[in-house]
Amino acid sequence: MNERERAATVRRMAREADPDRAIAALFAPTAVRDDLLALVALNGELARIANQVSEPGLGAIRLQWWRDALVRAEEGEATGHPVADAFGAVLARRKLSRERIAGLIDARSFDIGETVMPDTRTLNAYLFDTAGGLFALSAEIAGAEGENRGLIAQAAGQAYGLVRVMRSLPVLAAKGRTYLAADALERAGTTPQDLFAGRSGPGLSGLLAGMREESRAALSEARFHLHGEGMKGTGLDEAGRTAFLPLALVEPYLNALAKVKDPLRDIARINPLSRLWYLMRAR
């Protein structure tokens, strides 16, 4: 596979894995577009592992393969995997945070080893490493300059990540998994077993309403720091802000989630053309 074929393959894999982030990347400067798509594709490959393996040990082996493959690919060795090779080249060019990349991979150990998010603290840490890590690495790729870049990524990851948790609820619950925190479910008067059995109710509805408000609050915080409102010079430059374009979809998804009749069976969606409009407006 030559470089042009590899790039086309990675773009396709990014679109299939995460259409929202992949489309948002198309609005980034040309010089960083393919690097952002390689990051999206990498995250998609890591996220797929939980559905590909039958036991945690096999998942751990695959995660270790990715750790080793990225090291080899960064050094210029061909791994035979288009995403590993593409992102290895990104690492060589961009010198991205090794801590963030390790967090992105390590967080997937939860996916392959657990079926219930034990508590809110663990959920927040997971969102920090996954959704937040993607925003932080995207900002590095885009060459974001400005104070509070890490703070913005953390708030953005919380806002965007909570939306993903709520949207994935029907699919995961049907498989006997949930990313809703067990302690939050208990306070709401329900349990993971209720979710797996398809039993919804006022408690779950109240919990999800609270999560939507939490997502909105995090979105407001991210936007505040992103644009430097009230703090001269602390916002990000224009190139850096493109790394956070997926935030434009948070509010539309929250509105769609609020209209869902059965949160255990209905997946909140937004119109693809509307998605483009939200992203274009946020540029």
Rank of each mutant, 00 (worst) to 15 (best):
G57W: 05
G59M: 04
R164Y: 02
R199T: 10
A188L: 08
L180R: 04
G44Q: 00
A153T: 02
E74H: 02
S168F: 05
R15P: 03
G201Y: 11
T115S: 15
P19W: 08
H227A: 10
G161T: 04
A102W: 12
L151S: 09
L247C: 10
M231I: 14
W65V: 01
R275G: 12
L219D: 07
F128T: 14
L185Y: 02
E16V: 08
L70E: 00
P263F: 05
T178E: 07
E140Y: 01
G189Q: 11
A60S: 09
A184T: 10
A173M: 02
N148R: 13
V90G: 03
S138E: 03
R149I: 08
A159N: 04
F244S: 02
A159W: 05
L63N: 00
A144E: 04
F128K: 14
L207P: 06
A256S: 14
E214L: 11
M231W: 11
T79L: 04
G80K: 05
R212M: 07
R212Y: 13
A41K: 01
L264W: 03
A217S: 13
I141Q: 03
T120A: 15
N43D: 13
Y126T: 05
A184K: 09
T190M: 02
A73T: 02
Y179K: 09
A31C: 09
I112P: 07
L207W: 05
L247H: 05
Q64C: 02
D35V: 04
D18I: 07
G103N: 05
R187A: 15
A25E: 09
N255V: 15
R177S: 10
A155N: 09
V83G: 00
G146M: 06
Y278Q: 07
A239F: 13
P192D: 12
K259P: 05
L245A: 07
R216F: 06
D68I: 07
L42Y: 00
L134A: 14
